[in-house]
Write a protein that binds this DNA or RNA. Structure first.
Length: 275
DNA sequence: CACTCTCCCTGAAAGC
DNA sequence: TGCTTTCAGGGAGAGT
């Protein structure tokens, strides 16, 4: 579920917790992808949230005592904000109770999410943070940068887009959507991409991700209540999940690349070498 | 080093 | 209908 637009939408929803004080921390499932550190209790109980932001798909909840909770949502994780008379649901693994009856719950069916607790100034010492490439929405993302990373690569562009060490934030759905928008075949190898194509990919990254964020943002009720709905962007998918459907008489197909599904329209998305 | 594959986990959907 | 198999939006770590 959570790629960059979902994470962005989530942190926008979480901002109502700014300045609120944690009065209790409950860990219902310690072992997620990694164990939730035991010291989460004493490091944030009684503390107020200073700010909430993200690095790529990592959510950072920063407290005023210089502690940051880092949350990665994995495949199926989501954060819910609950009010006083909430009911704990299946797969709620961590709950932060705030003054004023707010509760923040991490719910994750598949337990691929993780929660880390670090001193704020040491966030970048975490290997999973420091090894990230440039954020997909950063204006530092340039064709020169991408070219430098991929001009010798024999990996297909679809997989390159999923590589968080190159561009951070794109996931499996938006990778297909971005390449369709750029009219580039997901099979094209990194070293075969032309400068124009790299520029086009960057444009499509911004366009698709921003549009996705806009659609989530337009359904405020969805994320304010954190009811698990995906927002409205699904109906905007052009190719993802649409194998067998047609775009102006050209068929969309599904292939498997590196164990992940890719959807594309071969007639519209050309490989440079096949022309 | 660069690339590829498996695995972590649960449940919905597809297959039989 | 009910049982079995496949697959899912992420990413680390092992293997080649």
């Amino acid at each position: 579920m959570p790629e960059l637009p979902e994470v962005e939408t989530t942190i926008n929803g979480l901002r109502i917790l700014k300045n609120k004080k944690v009065i209790k921390v409950k860990v219902y499932t310690k072992k997620l992808r990694y164990n939730i550190p035991d010291y989460i209790h004493k490091t944030i109980t009684g503390q107020r949230i200073k700010e909430i932001n993200r690095i790529a798909k990592y959510i950072l909840i920063k407290f005023k005592n210089n502690i940051t909770i880092i949350i990665h949502l994995g495949m199926s994780g989501r954060l819910k904000i609950l009010k006083k008379n909430f009911i704990k649901e299946k797969h709620d693994h961590l709950m932060l109770y705030f003054r004023d009856n707010y509760v923040l719950a991490l719910n994750d069916t598949r337990k691929f999410s993780f929660v880390d607790v670090v001193e704020t100034e040491n966030i970048c010492n975490k290997k999973y943070i420091s090894s990230l490439g440039i954020d997909a929405l950063s204006n530092k993302l340039s064709a020169d940068y991408i070219y430098g990373k991929i001009h010798k690569s024999v990996v297909p562009i679809k997989q390159i887009l999923l590589n968080q060490h190159i561009v951070a934030g794109i996931g499996n759905i938006y990778a297909s959507e971005i390449l369709f928008d750029a009219k580039i075949s997901p099979l094209t190898l990194g070293r075969d991409l032309l400068a124009d194509q790299i520029n086009q990919i960057i444009k499509s990254i911004k366009k698709i991700l921003k549009k996705a964020i806009r659609y989530k943002g337009s359904s405020i009720r969805d994320y304010r209540s954190f009811d698990g709905t995906l927002g409205n962007f699904q109906s905007n998918f052009k190719v993802y999940g649409k194998a067998g459907k047609k775009i102006s008489s050209y068929e969309i197909i599904k292939i498997i690349q590196y164990g992940r599904t890719t959807y594309f329209c071969p007639k519209i998305q050309k490989e440079q070498n096949s022309n």
